[in-house]
Lab assay of single mutants.
Amino acid sequence: MATDAALRRLLRLHRTEIAVAVDSAFPLLHALADHDVVPEDKFQETLHLKEKEGCPQAFHALLSWLLTQDSTAILDFWRVLFKDYNLERYGRLQPILDSFPKDVDLSQPRKGRKPPAVPKALVPPPRLPTKRKASEEARAAAPAALTPRGTASPGSQLKAKPPKKPESSAEQQRLPLGNGIQTMSASVQRAVAMSSGDVPGARGAVEGILIQQVFESGGSKKCIQVGGEFYTPSKFEDSGSGKNKARSSSGPKPLVRAKGAQGAAPGGGEARLGQQGSVPAPLALPSDPQLHQKNEDECAVCRDGGELICCDGCPRAFHLACLSPPLREIPSGTWRCSSCLQATVQEVQPRAEEPRPQEPPVETPLPPGLRSAGEEVRGPPGEPLAGMDTTLVYKHLPAPPSAAPLPGLDSSALHPLLCVGPEGQQNLAPGARCGVCGDGTDVLRCTHCAAAFHWRCHFPAGTSRPGTGLRCRSCSGDVTPAPVEGVLAPSPARLAPGPAKDDTASHEPALH
């Protein structure tokens, strides 16, 4: 009773807030009518008042009428009001819900409408889902798969039609296919003929059939049928067999079959498995989609049935006599038709004709302190090069084509190399640097090759510096006499390219 009084008091307290929050009759008014909170006449009256005075006034009048009803109607109103779709449509209802007392429970059932309790003993237990329907569909599909699609060729003596089998029958139906081979029951999904010589313990000319048996419980189990008994694959494991010639990621696949039913060829011909030897223990289905393919039931050349050999690369099948050149017997292992072999060759040939990528240039590290003349020119003028003790990398590039010797140069053309002071002394051009340390401070000019250098860098042994005729380390061993002091540049003949010694390969005349 306390809860009923509290709900009535809360409705009177929030009546105006609810009326202002509800700006549309749908969905709240319609939901109240659906849950029998508002009768039909009051529903029509509220809609009429909404058209006349507006939605807030109409709902305020409806809530005032609701306060005169019993506690069950008020409880049902609060339940409908706080439904998710009403809270989404009328956003101003959320503060009312947040301020609702926590001790007021809106989930209690309506009085007088409590459903009768059902004894637990009368409640049926839930049924577990079964796979009976899938099993029945598999039974119905198996006879259809064994139905012949056409008439065999005159040369083929193997013609068999499976008798119709009602689904209610649980007995196995067997077809006489000759040579002791028996087909599987209607619940078998796949059958492959297997030679009895590969099964340990088999006697006589009995041949087993590799099947997948579907049981009534819905589970499946792969086994071997020899005669009327089934054997699990673990009985046929043979770890010492060295003649297993397995197909790549293979499961067994029928390579020879008669049109209309699988079996042995007439005249004692023995149908073979995809792999010879003992049956392997793992009978998992292969991951290669080509091995799941269903080959055609007629020859791809003459479009006739009979004894066919199936290609492992495509769905086509052929007569042995229709092949070019014809085959006398079934080859062992994987067999592919000429079209598949030709496609494989065409895929391999473009790969062989692809040009080989060019090898990157060989990189040879230079000892610290040495650099090529090109690196000396590329440096920024007026700045010493940083990191001189790091190992430089010199790339061996292809030799350029031989060019004509340089033409003779006048001494005026070499004027930018040297600057003559007032006393006739050779001065260095701006930006000249030593080729060893890279520093341009207090550098000297070689009178023979006009290269800038430090005496301490080229002659670290402490050799005394002569007063005139300074030469760098590369030119100090040259027998050519030094030019007379005061000459602007060496003779043009000295600039012609010539053979250089091994220790002077990195010091070429550089223009500054």
Rank of each mutant, 00 (worst) to 15 (best):
L7H: 09
L10G: 01
L10V: 01
R15L: 04
T16P: 01
I18Y: 00
V20A: 00
D23V: 00
S24M: 10
A25F: 05
F26S: 02
L28Y: 01
L28Q: 05
L29P: 01
L32H: 00
V37W: 00
V38I: 15
E51M: 00
E53N: 02
P56W: 02
Q57T: 03
F59N: 01
F59A: 02
H60A: 01
L62S: 02
W65M: 01
T72N: 12
I74E: 00
I74Y: 02
L75Y: 15
D76M: 15
W78M: 03
R79G: 03
L81H: 00
D84N: 05
L87N: 05
L87T: 01
R89C: 03
Q94Y: 03
P95D: 04
I96D: 01
D98A: 07
S99Q: 01
F100G: 01
P101N: 03
K102A: 00
D105N: 04
L106A: 01
K111E: 07
G112Y: 08
G112H: 09
R113L: 09
P116N: 15
P116V: 08
A117R: 04
V118I: 10
P119K: 14
P119A: 10
K120W: 14
L122N: 03
L122I: 05
L122A: 07
L122S: 14
P124G: 13
P124S: 11
R127C: 08
R127N: 11
L128K: 01
P129W: 01
T130G: 12
K131T: 00
K133G: 02
K133E: 02
A134T: 01
A134L: 11
A134M: 00
S135W: 15
S135V: 09
A141F: 15
A142R: 06
P143G: 09
A145I: 07
A145R: 07
L146Y: 13
L146H: 05
T147L: 11
P148Y: 15
P148D: 07
T151F: 15
A152P: 05
A152Q: 08
P154F: 15
S156T: 15
S156M: 08
Q157W: 02
K159W: 14
P163E: 02
K164C: 02
P166T: 14
P166F: 15
S169Q: 03
A170K: 15
Q172K: 08
R174M: 03
L177D: 03
L177V: 07
N179A: 15
N179E: 12
I181K: 02
I181F: 15
S185L: 01
A186Q: 05
S187Y: 02
V188I: 10
V188F: 09
V188L: 13
A191P: 06
S195H: 10
G197K: 06
G197V: 12
D198L: 05
R203C: 15
G204Q: 08
G204Y: 02
V206T: 06
I209F: 08
Q212C: 10
E216H: 04
S217R: 09
S220E: 12
S220L: 10
K221F: 01
Q225R: 09
Q225T: 06
V226I: 08
G227R: 04
G228D: 11
S234R: 13
K235C: 15
E237W: 08
E237L: 12
E237H: 09
S239L: 14
S239N: 14
K243A: 05
K245G: 07
R247Q: 06
S249M: 13
S250A: 07
P252G: 02
P252M: 15
V256C: 07
V256Q: 06
G260V: 14
Q262S: 08
G263Y: 14
G263P: 08
A264V: 11
A264M: 10
A264Y: 01
A265Y: 13
E270G: 11
A271D: 13
A271W: 15
